[in-house]
Amino acid sequence: MGNELIQKINVLQNQLNIQLASRYEHKIDNQLTAKQVLLLELIRIGVTSTKDLASHLNISTSAVSQLLNKLESKEYIVRSINKENRREIILKLATKGELYFDELQMLEDEINHNVYGQLPLEDLKHLVRILGKLNAIVEGE
């Protein structure tokens, strides 16, 4: 019984993701890979050492360097040397990187309004509770 419900949840979740992607795909910057987006997210929230980025993404520091090179060449980030500690590199979002997150927020607002906004408040509360529990389970693993 439980397995059938979980399979149904997976199917419905996949269907929702596919429908959202096809409906809003034209509004998303498709130049970036998933790992590049995660890296930008981390830089945006202040994680800027190559070692810390590698740890968060569970990849090697050389892989992080390659991702940073691509993001810099695509003008999403800016690297500079810390004048107080010349061995330290400062990573910041470039204008294009900041614009990416502005557009993402507008898209999220649109989806929230057009999709989640159609649900009754009680359903939204249940969804938050359930997603919170799922996140706690994954974090505990």
Rank of each mutant, 00 (worst) to 15 (best):
K70A: 10
L93F: 03
V138K: 05
M106G: 13
L99T: 14
G140V: 02
E108G: 04
D102R: 15
N69G: 06
I59M: 05
D102M: 13
G46K: 05
I28Q: 06
V11L: 11
N114C: 05
Q7N: 14
S49R: 11
I130E: 14
Y116T: 02
L39P: 02
G140L: 05
L38E: 09
M106S: 15
K96N: 07
Q15V: 13
L104N: 05
M1Q: 06
S65A: 06
S49I: 01
L20F: 01
T95F: 06
K51T: 13
Y116D: 11
E122A: 15
D102W: 13
V47A: 06
I59Q: 04
N114K: 06
I43T: 04
E139M: 09
H113L: 15
S80R: 14
I6Y: 04
E72Q: 11
D123R: 08
L20S: 09
L131T: 02
E108W: 08
L20G: 04
K125G: 11
D109W: 07
L38G: 02
L38Y: 08
N17P: 03
L121Y: 14
E103I: 10
T95V: 09
Y24V: 01
L67E: 07
A63Q: 06
E122C: 09
Q7V: 06
L32Q: 02
S60F: 04
L53E: 03
S60E: 00
E108N: 10
V64Y: 00
L68P: 02
L124N: 12
V11D: 14
V64A: 01
G2V: 12
K8V: 03
G97R: 01
N85P: 02
L39A: 03
R129E: 08
D102C: 12
L53S: 00
L121G: 12
L53P: 00
A63L: 05
K74E: 09
K35V: 08
N58R: 15
L99A: 15
E139R: 14
N30R: 13
I6Q: 01
I9V: 05
T33M: 08
L119W: 10
L12W: 07
L134W: 09
V138P: 02
N69E: 07
R129F: 13
K83W: 02
R87E: 11
E75A: 04
N58T: 14
G117C: 01
L131V: 04
Q31S: 14
Q15F: 09
R87V: 10
H56L: 01
Q66P: 05
R79I: 13
G46N: 06
L71V: 07
K35R: 11
S22V: 14
E72F: 11
N3C: 07
K74R: 03
L107N: 06
L71F: 07
